[in-house]
């Protein structure tokens, strides 16, 4: 049995169980609505409440923040690998920002940047930055000495060594870092939206909670899960394309 079929069966089993529980134990709908009620509600929101626009808003913020955080992280990691002194200087600050709970940073960002997409993108960038930086630092720093020797024997220029040897070797740990960042990026975007926004899936969550609309809340959670999952699979797909020697080894 191959992986996609297994995944579908597993999901179908979960939905069946959910249905069975709602029916069998007569759970009130305001606590746990049936899967059908959730889908009904999502269809209603899609038609009447611009669900699609909320979804694309959140997706755009996740993607924007992710790209910015990844680029800054990779650049910083590469620079730190070259200049350990710079790393020692900045590491405490980066660790401080990184260890602060993201939920605690979000209100501050909203105070500074308002209710628009700004604080969401910044928060996503912050959570993406660290794993990307760590991956790049590892990748660029721990290249086997023999490859440096090879570069010297073959007479590579500094630029050639960077693009032909260092960068390809750094790709696997960078992608591994980005894979970790995907789930955190989704969480960060939603957290920031729940703290203060006038659109987005996080906003829908808060609105649903305030009006005791549990079908909508569960529906949005499902969309978020699917988003995170899809994002993760996208990075894995990129990994398989970028690093064929790793995935087949």
């Amino acid at each position: 049995m191959n992986a996609p079929i297994r995944a579908l069966l597993s999901l179908a089993g979960f939905v069946l169980l959910w249905w069975g529980a709602v029916w069998g134990f007569s759970i009130p709908a305001f606590l746990l609505p049936s899967p059908g009620a959730v889908i009904d509600r999502l269809v209603f929101l899609a038609i009447n409440a611009e669900l699609w626009r909320h979804t694309t808003t959140t997706l755009g913020q996740i993607l924007g923040g992710f790209v910015i955080g990844a680029l800054l992280g990779i650049g910083t990691g590469a620079a730190f690998a070259r200049l350990p002194r710079l790393e020692r200087l900045f590491t405490p600050v980066i660790l401080l920002v990184q260890t602060a709970p993201k939920i605690a940073i979000a209100p501050l960002l909203i105070l500074w940047l308002g209710l628009g997409p700004g604080p969401k993108i910044v928060l996503v960038a912050i959570v993406t930055f660290f794993p990307a930086m760590t991956g790049a630092l590892t990748g660029f720093r721990y290249i086997a000495k023999a490859y440096r020797d090879l570069a010297q024997i073959v007479g590579l220029t500094t630029w050639q060594r960077l693009t032909r040897i260092d960068l390809p070797f750094a790709v696997p740990p960078i992608v591994a870092g980005l894979r970790v960042a995907t789930t955190q990026a989704v969480t960060a975007a939603v957290v920031a939206e729940m703290m203060g926004a006038n659109r987005g899936l996080g906003y829908l969550l808060t609105a649903g909670q305030e009006s005791s609309d549990s079908p909508a809340v569960i529906g949005v959670i499902v969309i978020l899960s699917l988003t995170g999952w899809g994002f993760y699979e996208l990075v894995r797909f990129a990994e398989a394309k970028l690093i064929p020697w790793r995935s087949k080894a």
Binding site: A146, L150, R164, P168, P244, W245, R246
Partner: peptide, 10 residues
Amino acid sequence: VFQEPVLLPW
């Protein structure tokens, strides 16, 4: 020629 082949894996 090194002890290990030191080929570029990609």
